[in-house]
Simulated assay, not measured.
Amino acid sequence: MTVALATIGFTRTTAERFFERLGGAQVKRVIDVRLHNTSQLAGFAKSDDLAWFLRTINGTGYVHAPELAPTEELMKFFKTDKGDWKVFERGFRALMKERRIERELKPSFFAGGCLLCSEPTAERCHRRLVVDYLNEHWGGELKVTHL
Rank of each mutant, 00 (worst) to 15 (best):
H36D: 07
H36R: 10
H36F: 03
H36S: 07
N37V: 01
T38E: 09
T38D: 11
Q40P: 05
Q40C: 01
Q40V: 01
L41K: 12
L41G: 06
A42N: 14
A42V: 01
G43I: 03
G43L: 09
G43R: 10
A45Q: 01
A45E: 00
K46G: 09
K46P: 05
S47L: 01
S47D: 13
D49K: 06
D49A: 05
L50R: 00
L50A: 00
L50E: 00
L50W: 00
A51Q: 11
W52H: 13
W52S: 13
W52V: 14
W52F: 10
W52L: 11
F53A: 01
F53L: 11
L54V: 00
L54K: 00
R55A: 15
R55L: 15
R55I: 07
R55C: 13
T56G: 04
T56I: 04
I57T: 04
I57H: 02
I57P: 00
N58C: 12
N58Y: 05
N58E: 08
G61L: 01
G61K: 00
G61A: 04
Y62E: 06
V63L: 12
H64D: 09
A65D: 07
A65T: 03
A65H: 04
E67T: 10
E67N: 08
L68Y: 10
L68H: 11
A69E: 06
A69G: 13
T71A: 11
T71P: 13
T71K: 15
T71D: 11
E72C: 08
E72K: 15
E72V: 10
L74H: 07
L74G: 03
M75S: 11
M75W: 08
M75T: 11
K76M: 07
K76C: 08
K76I: 06
F77I: 12
F77W: 09
F77E: 09
K79C: 05
T80K: 15
T80C: 04
T80F: 07
D81I: 06
G83M: 07
D84G: 06
W85D: 14
W85S: 15
W85G: 15
W85L: 15
K86G: 11
K86L: 14
V87F: 12
V87K: 12
F88C: 08
F88N: 05
R90C: 07
R90N: 08
R90S: 12
R90P: 02
R90F: 05
G91I: 12
G91L: 14
G91S: 13
F92Q: 00
F92W: 02
R93P: 03
R93M: 09
R93L: 14
A94N: 06
A94E: 10
L95D: 04
L95T: 02
M96D: 02
K97Q: 10
K97F: 02
E98L: 02
E98S: 03
R99D: 10
R100T: 15
R100Q: 15
I101H: 02
E102A: 13
E104S: 11
E104L: 12
L105G: 05
L105Q: 09
L105T: 12
L105P: 04
K106Q: 10
K106G: 04
K106W: 02
P107R: 04
P107T: 08
